[in-house]
Design a protein around this nucleic acid. Structure first.
Lengths: 240, 240
DNA sequence: TGCTGCTGTTTACAGCGTAAGCGGTACGTT
DNA sequence: AACGTACCGCTTACGCTGTAAACAGCAGCA
């Protein structure tokens, strides 16, 4: 074995700063404590470095967040491009499942993928990558879609993903930020309302009755059902 | 006419501070300059008052944002409750259109309605109000839905709204925050990439070919189509 | 030996949310 | 008329943020 290498993995000390290391630590910090808590200073602390050191590798916090989003997407694109699918249905299902997997693996960061403005208006989240969109459109056209059909499918598909996954991860992130009561305008001797649960007990009988059902998590089945329904709908407009 | 009234509308000077006035100004500021720019200090400036004065009426910035979201919703609930609809299909369409109208009227604030955690996990955005959810569930049950069917419909309906409307308003908000280039790791004599438009010209022929189609705004038609498809799907599972 | 380039640190500044205390004004009670 | 007492908005202050700018240590090379 070579006794000495100029690489970065010899000592237990932090090897070196790099854009990749910063982005990874940023993602980890976001998942651990929420986006707001991921500050340049705390991130520097995580990496054993002053905050300003990060600015050699990212041009600012916004750039870093953008890079985190990008890093979530590019592992996925390669997998999608590698996978071979026989029908466009199978293809869209594969993409959908990959993205759902990513969303569930990073539930706190996923809203960033959705809410940050993409580079171009026609890049719809969560497919905010040109390569990804190109691959999807190309695949659909290959399978006999017209341009219009491909674009319509792309739009309906992204809408479905955003709606399903954003609400699904939001239930899994619940109390990163604590709750606080809203304050009442005038003086304050209105009978105290203990919890949200108690208010509707009088006002919302249906909600109370169905509360268990409402709280149950069937998101996977709902996702599959919705996806299948979407594919059926597309199938009808395509074969027409 | 009475020569003097103790009310607030006599002089052109700011009448008085109140929670409602603060919330309204907050919403206006958000729509004008984006959520981030709506700071307690700037909002005080808008109202001709020091920032700390606001704290008599809202318990903090978070509370204010919550109140803004609430204010977007409660005008709508009353309208939905007032409207009379004959079928559950018509009812859901009415609700969907009301919410879409709200989203388009406040495209910058709408993401707040979606992304802020609701008071209870089973209050799914954008229907984050107990009264709203109660009314929806009650109406569906009235029309013969079982509890399970009502809950499933509620979930699918909210997912649809979030996906469609969030992406629709996001295209209408495009450049509230400016773009910035991401910085490249090593030295910087890689040939400069002028705009996003030029990169894909070589790499993404399908995107280039369909760019016009991708940019065209058919969001209304897409919304109606998607909604109708959703209603059909629900209809099938209900009558089965 | 000195020069040059890269890397991380130090210092500094404007702006943020907000806790705490202060002053003025209007009003009910005496 | 005078006084106590709410209420309302202002002032000050603190710790936090993102980041611009100057600086220090250290590598390799002449």
């Amino acid at each position: 074995m070579s006794p000495e290498e100029p690489d970065e993995a010899r000592s237990t000390r932090p090897p070196r700063l790099s854009r990749q290391r910063i982005v990874d630590a940023g993602l980890a910090s976001i998942e651990a404590h929420g986006v707001d808590q991921m500050t340049m200073r705390s991130l520097g602390r995580d990496l054993g470095v002053e905050a300003m050191a990060l600015y050699r590798y990212v041009s600012g916090r916004e750039d870093l967040l953008e890079a985190v989003v990008e890093s979530l997407l590019d592992g996925l694109i390669k997998r999608v491009e590698a996978a071979e699918t026989t029908s466009w249905q199978e293809y869209l299902q594969h993409v959908a499942h990959e993205i759902r997997h990513m969303a569930l693996a990073h539930p706190t960061a996923f809203p960033l993928v959705v809410s940050r403005h993409p580079a171009a208006p026609w890049l719809r989240p969560p497919l905010r990558d040109i390569a990804m969109v190109e691959h999807l459109l190309a695949t659909l056209c290959e399978r006999g879609f017209s341009d219009d059909q491909a674009v319509d499918t792309y739009k309906a598909f992204t809408s479905f993903l955003v709606g399903s996954l954003l609400l699904e991860v939001s239930t899994k992130t619940e109390n990163v930020a604590a709750v606080e009561e809203p304050m009442n305008e005038g003086s304050a001797d209105i009978p105290e309302q203990d919890t949200v649960e108690d208010v509707d007990l009088g006002q919302a009988p249906h909600v109370v009755r169905m509360r268990d059902r409402l709280s149950q998590d069937h998101s996977e089945a709902e996702f599959e059902t919705g996806l299948e329904s979407l594919l059926n709908r597309i199938e009808n407009t395509v074969s027409h």
